[in-house]
Computed example of a mutant assay.
Amino acid sequence: MPSSPAISPTFAALPTSPATTPDTQALQEHVRSGLTRTPKTLSSMYFYDEVGSRLFQQIMQLPEYYPTRTEFGLMTEHRHAIAAALMPANGVPLHLLELGAGDGLKTKILLRELLSQQANFTYAPVDISPSALDELRQSLEQELPELRVQPLTAEYTAALPTLREQPGRKAVLFLGSNIGNFLPADRLQFLRQLAQPLAPDDRLFVGFDLRKDPRVIQAAYDDAQGVTAAFNLNLLHRLNRELGADFQVDQWQHFAQYNPLDGAMRSFLVSRRAQQVHVAALGQSFAFEAWEAIHTENSYKFTLPQIEALAAEAGLQVLEVFTDEQAWFADVLLAPVGK
């Protein structure tokens, strides 16, 4: 599950760019493609309408959902070292660009630390949701009025080229466990995209959810209160609202399963009975057999050797790894090589 509405993105279920803006036209084509596949699939990038974003805020507060609080804790513990690792020497300006900024909960830890060290920096949060960015801007104005903020409503591929225009060191933040939402080939391609506009002195700071007790992971994506189920099922409500679909949502159920062999947490929407669903915006109906599934999300978990190998393949080197005491999560500082 993405840890912020960037999430926002992913993109693992279909070969959809994580930077694709989820407008109605794109949603229509995505649904047409995804529901005519075998097996059927929809991307979790479409989880984050207004209702979905609120539900995800609730998920982050659940006792079972460890990623947010674990990363929050490790960033709090290591905030001084992380800030020092990101800051360039001799007062050179730092341009901090965050992809899928969301509510900025964890990022504010770093921003406060950089301000306390009187760093010369600008924060540029990027999100595809104008309302999310506006809420973040307002909260930053209240909590950190001295902060220089340059919000950017854009898809990722549009935001990355702006780095070349910035003086000094550039650092790209991709926090949470968003990188785990990509299929392996897409993940490598995305990291290469992130590395492409970076100079040797620039930095990339990425969050990775690490492998751990499978039961802990399973519970995080299938909580006892059913909030994660509501979050997944809201995708069907969204298709009803925006595309005139007639999903009978009570005839569907959320199912999540973790595979410790490949480190993939997979989520599905499962049809409780044989049924036909009509999508008015497409002028098309889709047949579902009893207990047929729509694959909606992947969330891969990693080992540290995997991260090292992935970085090397993407043309990056691992400079530092920051983890919590249980080694459940890692925020990894990367730099481009061979430039």
Rank of each mutant, 00 (worst) to 15 (best):
Y300S: 01
A293F: 10
Q326F: 11
V227H: 14
Q138A: 13
K40Q: 12
V249N: 09
L99H: 03
D103T: 05
A330P: 03
Q142C: 06
G176K: 01
M265E: 06
R169D: 06
T162Y: 08
N298P: 01
A199Y: 05
P2Y: 10
T10V: 10
K40W: 09
Q118G: 00
I59S: 07
A280P: 04
T153D: 06
R148V: 13
A274R: 14
L114H: 03
A327R: 14
S53K: 10
R215Q: 13
W328S: 08
L333Q: 08
H254D: 05
G207C: 00
V321C: 10
Q138T: 06
F182L: 03
H237P: 07
F322G: 05
R169M: 04
L99N: 05
L333T: 07
Q317V: 15
V318W: 09
L163T: 04
T228K: 07
A312C: 05
D23M: 14
A158S: 14
L97M: 14
L236G: 11
P88V: 09
Y123M: 04
L62D: 09
G100R: 06
V277H: 09
V51F: 14
E308C: 02
L105W: 03
T20Q: 13
A195T: 02
L175P: 03
A327I: 13
L243W: 07
H80S: 05
R112D: 02
Q248R: 09
A158D: 15
A101D: 02
A84K: 12
S131W: 03
F47W: 13
G52T: 09
G338F: 09
L333F: 05
L86I: 13
L86R: 12
Q284V: 06
G34Q: 11
V206F: 00
G102P: 03
T21D: 09
K301M: 02
L163A: 05
P9N: 13
